[in-house]
């Protein structure tokens, strides 16, 4: 396993925002991390990239093993070396990665110069090749332009090029296309996943769109209110979701030939971190909630389909209360 996350908990101040999250990622795998806003996707991304201190957060329990090294106990200096070189991070807003006053070319070159030790000329050749693979027309000309001269979609491609330039093993992408137009979104998701697969890299793709998960990922982890609801291979999740929340999320996407009125959404609102419900945090919104759901926290348990679920009354399994 390239990545092993075990019982990970994250807090900011006294507030526990992520609790007991576990999943594995093998080399070459693409995992979707999905959930409504506020479910803890970005916090997970920050934990994976060692950037929690940026927002005043810290890991309070569990472990986070990357290629055999525990990232939680690594000194800062070692973490910084891992990030960029072996773990790359793509955020929703490309301007968090781009320097507005520097031309595109040198910014992308910088990654392969620092991490791969390439000289100026080799780095630029690598940059041009990457930009071309990302279907950026006139890569040469783009190298001498500034970020503000490019469209949002183009900037995000540059950020992807920067992520790939250091030849990492793992890419964490936090809603990389949310701010973009639909046709551009589709192009970028296709390009990113294709390049990742061609290189045999691993990708954690954070999204709130079950459609993207179905189209692009090998496996899925579903988060709700800071806890893992269910995780399993993507085909198994869509064929038979076990957690009522996974099922409900899938049913929020209009499908070809869906009967009118069948799209109903999930009642109520996402639980807020300052007032998480007792027991299963999904119980106030859950159509299957029964005895015990409001008092007992459901634990992750194994499934016959190679996944795990945390629910007292899963859709196709034995209840555990």
């Amino acid at each position: 396993m390239l990545l092993r996350v075990k019982n990970l908990s994250v807090s900011i101040g006294t507030l526990t925002l992520l609790e007991g999250v576990s999943f594995d990622l093998a080399k070459g795998e693409i995992m979707g991390l999905v959930g409504e806003s506020g479910s803890g996707k970005s916090l997970t991304a920050l934990a994976l990239t060692g950037l929690l201190p940026l927002i005043g957060g810290r890991v309070t329990a569990g472990s986070l093993e990357f290629d055999g090294t525990d990232m939680v106990t690594q000194p800062k200096r070692k973490l910084r070396a891992l990030r960029g070189r072996r773990i790359a991070f793509i955020t929703q807003n490309p301007m968090t990665a781009l320097d507005p006053v520097q031309r595109i070319g040198p910014q992308v070159d910088f990654v392969s110069r620092t991490h791969l030790g390439l000289d100026r000329k080799a780095a630029r050749a690598r940059t041009i090749a990457l930009l071309t693979q990302l279907r950026i027309p006139q890569a040469d000309a783009i190298c001498s332009s500034y970020p503000h001269q490019l469209s949002g979609g183009m900037k995000q491609r540059i950020v992807i090029a920067m992520a790939l330039a250091g030849d990492p093993d793992l890419i964490v992408a936090d809603e990389p296309t949310t701010a973009l137009d639909v046709t551009v979104q589709a192009q970028i998701i296709h390009l990113l996943t294709r390049l990742v697969r061609e290189r045999g890299l691993s990708l954690v793709l954070i999204t709130h769109d079950m459609g993207v998960v179905a189209q692009a990922c090998d496996k899925v982890a579903v988060l709700y209110a800071g806890r893992l609801a269910e995780q399993k291979p993507v085909h198994a999740l869509f064929a038979s979701p076990q957690h009522p929340y996974s099922a409900a999320l899938i049913d929020c996407i209009p499908r070809e030939g869906m009967a009118p009125g069948s799209l109903t959404g999930i009642p109520g609102n996402v639980a807020s971190a300052t007032a998480y419900p007792s027991g299963c945090r999904f119980h106030p919104r859950c159509p299957r909630a029964g005895a015990g759901c409001d008092t007992k926290v459901p634990v992750q348990r194994g499934l016959s389909d190679a996944g795990t679920v945390a629910c007292h009354y899963p859709l196709n399994g034995a209840p555990d209360v």
Partner: peptide
Amino acid sequence: ALMASTFAPNPNARQEATELTGEI
């Protein structure tokens, strides 16, 4: 192209990338 850019929630029917290039 718009239709091909809508990701269907079905992993058994993976869509090809659109042939669209460029941006608006």
